[in-house]
Structures are given as C-alpha cells and as structure tokens.
Nucleic acid binder design. Structure first.
Lengths: 181, 181
DNA sequence: CTTACTGTACCGTCTGGACGGTATTGTCAA
DNA sequence: TTGACAATACCGTCCAGACGGTACAGTAAG
C-alpha cells in the first residue's frame, strides 16, 4: 500500500523486455513472460488479450519514455537559451551512456512483425519535422539526426563498436556544428 | 567446392532471406525455407545441419557481399586519387539506393540469438580501424561512420523516414567534409 | 456486484531435428 | 571391362515438445 505499487501491466511489460534480452528477441513466449512477471498466464492474457497487443504495448512504452525524456529536456531549459537540436543531441548523448532495457522489447516486436515498428517510424518522422522547423541548416540537422540514429542502432544491437572517446568525439563535433548554426 | 550454377546452398540462403522479409524475422521456419528454396527439408538439413548453422551462414553471406563491394570499390580507383573514407561514403550512398534482400536474413539471425551478430560487430570494428588509420580527422570520421550506420539501420528496419533530398543532403555534406581532410 | 486477477486443464498447430531411404556419381581392384 | 563399394546430395516421414490461445471455476478487495 505504501508507495507506488507497480501494476501488473507494468510488471509484465518490464518482464517481457528483460526476457527478450535474455532469451533473444524472437524467442519470447507468453508462458515465460507471465512466470517472470510473477503473474499467472490467465492474468497476463487478462491484461493483454493477444501476443500482438503485448508487442504493441512494448513499443508504445518505449516511445512514451522517449517522449517523456524529450519533454523533460525541453522544460529543463524551457526558454531559447539553447536551440532544440542542441537539446536533442545532449539528451541522446546522455541516453547513450545508460542502458535502456526497454529496447529489447522493441526488438521482440520487430521479430514478431516489422509492422509493429510503424509507430516508431511515425514518431521519428514527426520529431525530425519539428527539429527541421527549428533548425536553419538542414544538412547539419540531417547529419546530427543520422549520427544519433547510428548510435541508437548500435545500442539496440548491443554492439559496442565505439569506445567512449570515439563516441564523445562525434557528439562534441555535432554540438559545435549545432551551436554554430 | 563452390558450384557455378545456383547450388542448393545458395538457393536456400536466398529463400531464407526472402522469407524472413515476408513472414517477419522471428517467424522463419525450416519447413518454409525448404519449400521456398524448392528443396526438401532433409535436403536443407543436409546443407545446414541445424538452424543455428543456417543463421550463421546468413550473416556470413551478408558480410561477404559487403566485403566484396568494398573490395570492388577499392580496385575501381585503386590509387590514392580519393581517400578511403570518401570511397566508403560513396559506396554506402549507392547501397542506400538499391534494396538488399540479404539484410532480412541478418534480422532473422538477430531474432534467433543476438550473438549471431558478433561477426558483424567484429567486421565493422575492423573496418573502422582501417578507416581510422587512413583518415587524419578522427572526429569527422566518426561522424561519417555513424551517419552511415544510421542510414543502414533505417534500411534494415525498412523505415523510410528520410526522403531522397534529405539523404543526399547528409551524404554530400559528408563528402565535402571528407574531401576537406 | 464488479474488478482484477489466480490456477488448472486443455486444444490444435507448428517446430526443429532425427532417421531411414534413394538416385547418381565416382573410385578402384580383379 | 566389370562388379563392388563408397561418397555425395538429397527426399519424405515422423515425433516429442513448445507454442498461442481458450475455458472456466475460484477468490479477495472495494
């Protein structure tokens, strides 16, 4: 009762992501998710009537946390001391350093059916459009956006190709270019 | 060893990639692959004793075609009229425009077990090291490398977030920066 | 009475892979 | 030349188990 109780729904979502990370994105079974979430299978299916619904929720959850982080960043220095591209780069740099378990859930959704990623595509296109309207140099924006996508994909695949120095080099280059705009 | 006419092996590999693209990376079954390749399941299992071996071959195949393209690019203008980073950017730009079905096979391997991507990581790290030794400005190299990774990941996920103009803007910016090094 | 589950039993389907068989092509001693 | 054998490259069937999903009776809390 005391504190914030994690709902079954949240426990299931977290368990699904963690499990996807452990067993591989394509080997996620409802039985295993229910067990890890400390929920009966009937309970899981009460919250998510089908596996597809679970996958959609996993993606929505991922997008939601992304959106929240963006909003938090925006309200932190709400006025125009920094341009929005700079804010986005800094946010992404910070996200790069911490691991985000929910990403594995997105991969599980992808494995099930690539169409589950459509909301991600739409979200990113919207984000890019917003950035575009607030950034004078489109070429530099594209470069920055793509660098961050590259970084994000590496993290998604858990491929630590770059070391910290190399990552920071790219990021600070971007920040310099963004400030010069 | 390697036959000239399309061997069963090659047909199976192609069928697997195509099918992964159709049914989703995580829903690839040996039966379906065999059927599409025009081979019996026994025949498939003769060429690839386990599903894991198939997945490994899919990844190797992908890497091989990547490697071949790089080598072809290098021998095309073998001497130092262009630096190697410029060559890599141009190659990637060209790859961006054509669709590559083998990418779906890589996703299937990922869905099965993320560790199957280890050879990809190693290959890319090696590539980056080579580029690093031949490129004076490391920061610009990192930016270029990451932009290309971003582009590649979008293609992998079949997310056409950017239009041609936007893509070319980023690419020509990179080319300009690379030439200035 | 409703909400939010638990727990168990069950169903039809699909899956990886084992296995035994077979046609074709070499290899090689007599 | 021939007959015996072996290797290659598959085919087709079968199976134990896992899977998503259904059904339903029970229950504890508000």
């Amino acid at each position: 009762m005391a504190g914030h109780r994690p709902s079954s729904r949240d426990k299931i979502l977290a368990a699904a992501s963690e499990l996807a990370d452990i067993v591989g994105p394509g080997n996620l079974s409802l039985d295993a998710v229910a067990q890890r979430a400390g929920v009966s299978k009937g309970g899981l299916l009460y919250n998510f009537p089908t596996k597809a619904k679970l996958m959609q929720a996993l993606v929505q959850d991922y997008l939601k946390s992304f959106e929240d982080a963006l909003e938090a960043e925006a309200s932190k220095h709400g006025d125009a001391t920094k341009n929005s591209l700079t804010a986005y780069i800094e946010l992404s740099a910070r996200e790069c350093e911490q691991k985000q378990p929910s990403a594995a859930g997105v991969l599980a959704a992808l494995a099930e059916d690539p169409d589950f990623l459509n909301p991600v595509r739409d979200f990113k296109r919207q984000l890019l459009d917003r950035l575009k309207s607030e950034t004078p140099d489109t070429a530099k924006l594209m470069v920055a956006f793509l660098v961050i996508e590259g970084l994000r994909s590496m993290k998604l695949f858990d491929m630590d190709i770059l070391n910290d120095d190399e990552r920071n080099m790219a990021l600070s280059y971007l920040l310099g270019e963004a400030a010069a705009s």
